[in-house]
C-alpha cells in the first residue's frame, strides 16, 4: 500500500505531467497496476524500483508508445495516451533510452541532429527541392548538433559511426539528442547506466544546467539511488508494477516497504 499520499504541493494546473490510475497489460501479463503520481513544473522526480518493476514501461506509456489499459497520462493537460508516439515530442517531451545500440550506421553528430525539432513541413519540402532554406535548416541542425557535442566533450567523436563509438559516448550522444530538441519535460531512462563513475558528473551537470536554463521537469529512472538523489527532490518507488511509496527523498528512502522490496541490504 502507498504509505505517503502522492499529493504534491503545487496546484494541479501547474503539473507538468500527471499519471492517473495507469494500468497496463500486454497479452496476459499485467505490467502496471493503478500507477498515480504527478510531476510539477520545474520538479525532478526519481523513479526507483528493482529490475522488471515497470520503470521503463511507465516511460513508454508517458511517451505515448504503450496505450494503457486504463487511466490517463497528461502532459501539460494534453492526454498523450490517445495519440501516436511520434506526436508526443511536440508537447515538449524528450526521452532518452536505457539501451543504445539499435541504430548503428549513423554518426554521433547525426544521431544528435535527429533531435532537432523539424520545422514541418516546410523543411521537408525545402530539403527535397534543395532550396536554400532547406539547406540552411539542415546545416544549422548539424551545426547545432556538432556544437553541443563539442561542448560536452564528444568533439573528437562527431564523425564516428555509432557502432564504432564507445558505449559511454553513445549514451551521451543519446542524451544530447534529447537536449538539442529543447524539451520542457525530460524522461530519462537510466542515463548513467554503463557510464564510468567519473563521467556521471558530466551527466549531472548537463541535466542541472538544462534545468536552470529552462525550468523544465524531469522524470529520472535509475538503479543507482545515489545518482538519482543528486538530482531528484522527490521519489516514486515501484514494486511489481505498483507504486509502493511517493514523497520527498528522505521520506521514501526510510519507507519500510521500499527498504524491503528494493533497497534491501544495500540501503
Amino acid at each position: 500500500m502507498t504509505t505517503t499520499l502522492g499529493a504534491s504541493p503545487q496546484a494541479s494546473q501547474s503539473q507538468a505531467v500527471s499519471l492517473d490510475g495507469v494500468c497496463l497489460a500486454i497479452g496476459e501479463v499485467d505490467i502496471l497496476d493503478s500507477v498515480t503520481f504527478d510531476v510539477a513544473e520545474g520538479e525532478t522526480v526519481g523513479l526507483i524500483g528493482a529490475n522488471g518493476s515497470g520503470k521503463s514501461s511507465i516511460l513508454n506509456v508517458m511517451s505515448g508508445y504503450y496505450s494503457p489499459t486504463a487511466g490517463a497520462v497528461r502532459v501539460r493537460g494534453h492526454d498523450v495516451t490517445k495519440i501516436r508516439a511520434e506526436r508526443v515530442p511536440r508537447y515538449g517531451v524528450g526521452r532518452s533510452f536505457q539501451s543504445v545500440g539499435a541504430i548503428k550506421d549513423l554518426t554521433v553528430r547525426e544521431l544528435i541532429a535527429l533531435g532537432v525539432e523539424p520545422a514541418w513541413p516546410s523543411s521537408l519540402v525545402a530539403s527535397l527541392l534543395g532550396l536554400r532554406a532547406g539547406r540552411s535548416a539542415e546545416r544549422s541542425a548539424l551545426d547545432r548538433a556538432g556544437a553541443l557535442a563539442d561542448e560536452y566533450g564528444l568533439g573528437q567523436f562527431i564523425g564516428v559511426r555509432l557502432d564504432e563509438a564507445p558505449y559511454g559516448v553513445r549514451k551521451m550522444a543519446d542524451l544530447l539528442r534529447v537536449f538539442v530538441g529543447e524539451p520542457s519535460v525530460l524522461l530519462l531512462d537510466e542515463p548513467a547506466s554503463g557510464v564510468a563513475k567519473a563521467d556521471r558528473s558530466a551527466i549531472v551537470d548537463l541535466i542541472s544546467q538544462w534545468r536552470e536554463r529552462s525550468g523544465g521537469s524531469v522524470v529520472l529512472v535509475d538503479h543507482d539511488v545515489a545518482f538519482v538523489v543528486r538530482l531528484a527532490s522527490r521519489l516514486v518507488a515501484l514494486s511489481s508494477g505498483r507504486v509502493v511509496a511517493v514523497g520527498p527523498v528522505d521520506h521514501v528512502l526510510r519507507d519500510d516497504a521500499v527498504v524491503e522490496s528494493f533497497l534491501g541490504s544495500s540501503a
Partner: peptide
C-alpha cells in the same frame, strides 16, 4: 535532414517514432 531521418527509420521504426 529528411534523408537522415529516413536512415534512422530503416534502423528501427519504433525507435524513430519515439524520436
Amino acid at each position: 535532414i529528411t534523408g537522415l531521418r529516413m536512415r534512422a527509420l530503416s534502423a528501427d521504426e519504433s525507435l524513430a517514432e519515439y524520436y
